[in-house]
């Protein structure tokens, strides 16, 4: 009749020793070894503490309806300026027709495209060589870290010949000089940029030194030439707002979780190796211990 294994049961030996013995020393040293060495290994191999992480989010961008438009004409001392905010005494600016339209194509509540149409009335003898259009945007990311700020989308384009119109298509991208803090950074740079700035130079300088800002990338400019003197100068700007990569500084629990995973994975290997080593040491009685066999009663 065939015999088969029905049930298995491991037998555990117990090795016993006194407090002051060689075996205690071996046990303490090997335990310390198992605990500390994985820490050293996982730390020295870099990336133990997760200092920055990256995620993708489509920012919630809204046009604040504040803009600044400067056209350089053939007469350098007479640039054409338009802006939404002005004081009653401003005499420098023209009367631009400014249209904007925010488009949410996938209807997820976040704006995907901002389209801007400007028509600048020009005198008959004026010809435009350069366009600088700055829009103030309300920028908000909320998924992992919260950051709300006023940012700019600046277009600058020059043309060698007198232009008759400019079409620009670009993407808005979040740029950062340092990672966004996990929890703070709410309501940073919330002041109105265009209203505060006195000169364009100041505006560009202060804005470019900010830690978090937005820029236009993937920009295509299309100038038309040959102006119709009866027509105003048209500018079309279409900004796409895709998902941005946001580098952030993770919170405490995320850091600890990643460290723990790394430590544990190394620790298990060391524990296994040390177990084999201890088994060799104690089973061969390299250090003297009392070995209690389960089926023998120690008297």
């Amino acid at each position: 009749m065939a015999v088969y294994e029905v049930f298995t049961q491991p037998v555990s030996y117990r090795y016993k020793t006194t407090l002051c013995s060689k075996a205690t020393v071996v046990f303490v040293i090997s335990s310390l070894f198992v605990i500390i060495l994985p820490l050293v290994v996982s730390y020295r191999s870099n990336g133990f503490w997760l200092k920055s992480d990256i995620y993708q989010e489509q920012p919630d961008v809204k046009f604040t309806h504040d803009y600044l438009l400067v056209l350089e004409t053939s007469i350098p001392q007479n640039p054409i300026q338009c802006r939404a905010q002005f004081s009653l005494n401003d005499n420098f600016q023209r009367h631009c027709l400014f249209k904007s339209y925010e488009e949410d194509t996938n209807r997820d509540g976040k704006i995907d495209f901002i389209t801007v149409n400007v028509k600048v009335p020009l005198l008959r003898n004026e010809s435009v060589y350069s366009v600088r259009l700055i829009l103030a945007l309300d920028f908000y990311i909320s998924n992992i870290c919260h950051l709300r700020m006023q940012s700019l989308a600046a277009v600058e384009s020059t043309c060698g010949v007198p232009g008759a119109g400019l079409d620009v298509a670009a993407d808005l991208r979040f740029t950062q000089k340092k990672p966004v803090d996990y929890r703070t950074a709410e309501a940073l740079f919330s002041s109105s940029l265009l209203a505060d700035s006195s000169s364009l130079k100041d505006l560009i300088l202060t804005y470019s030194q900010r830690n978090y800002s937005t820029t236009l990338i993937n920009q295509y400019n299309l100038w038309a030439s040959g102006r119709d003197e009866d027509e105003p100068f048209p500018i079309t700007l279409r900004i796409a707002i895709p998902e941005s990569s946001i580098v952030y500084r993770p919170g405490f629990w995320q850091v600890v979780k990643w460290a723990w995973i790394q430590y544990l994975s190394v620790f298990i290997v060391f524990l296994h190796v040390m177990h084999i080593l201890q088994e060799y040491i104690f089973s061969n009685q390299l250090v003297p211990t009392f070995r209690s066999v389960p089926w023998k009663k120690i008297h």
Binding site: H95, C96, F98, K99, S100
Partner: peptide, 13 residues
């Protein structure tokens, strides 16, 4: 200027 649907407008004279 005719007001068109959906387009925010700022114009002056």
């Amino acid at each position: 200027h005719i007001v068109t649907f959906g387009e925010d407008l700022h114009m002056s004279c």
